[in-house]
Amino acid sequence: MGGQRAQVIDERGGRPAPPGVAIPAGPPPELVFKRRLRPLQVAHELWAARELVRALAERDLRARYKQAVLGFAWAVLTPLALCAIFTLVFHRAVKIETGAAPYTLFAYVGLIVWQFFSNTMNQGALSLANNLSLLNKVYCPREVFPLATMLVATVDMAIGIGVLGLMFLVFWTAPAATFLWAVPLLLIQFAFTYGIALILSVAVVYLRDVRHLLPIITQMGVFATPVAYPLAKIPHRLQEIYVGLNPLGAVIEGYRKALLYGEAPDGRMTLIAAASSLVFLVGGYLFFKKLETGIADVA
């Protein structure tokens, strides 16, 4: 007796569609979805999401600095401990020559940059994977998640810079007058770091085991980057290629020149680093945006 009722016809002029009848086998190829990025729209969306970035960063910071003293200590202790070890090993044992500047300051400048990079990379890489439940329910430009982790790392870096100020007092030297060069170097550092975080964050969503590579990258990176030694230790003819692949090398070297030696950063190296980090940033962003469309499907 069931089903005697006639098929209902849509009064709005839509089509009644019994399964298998009017439905084509596949979509028309010209309608297949392609990711289009309009820079203006992207910028607008990102600006509109600033509250979200702040809230996400605040959540991380609040969790960490709940016990103000310990939280603060963690941000300071890791680079200081590494700094002490580097001073013992590289300064005393290997005898790295740092000219007029005390080795401890020399290493600490490198460590601030490295710490910022490795924090952003490690946390940023997991930022999407850890927030999948949120990603699946609310729309927002997804690049805010790695961005928020970079913001957190920036706060840590600010604390590190405060400690650097104290160290200048301890060593009775003043930062050189050329310290304003740090501003463009900072931009290069941010661009490169964010580019890497973007690539890794989306890679971890699709390839869950990539996260196991992170500690290895971190361990090797601190020695592969001129943190404990000057850039000059890298063979001269390879330096340009090296800086192209790892702009942090030129950035750290630039900071040292500007802050400790009162010189302008090497123009050529800085330009290579700037170009390279721009490629990482734009390339990483496009890669991220391309793969972003499938995140909800695999979550």
């Binding site: 979805f33 990603l135 699946n136 609310v138 729309y139 909800a296």
Partner: peptide, 13 residues
């Protein structure tokens, strides 16, 4: 989910 833009369609507008 596609209406909220959380998910993207394979094809269509």
């Amino acid at each position: 989910k596609m209406l909220t833009r959380v998910m993207y369609p394979y094809a269509g507008i």
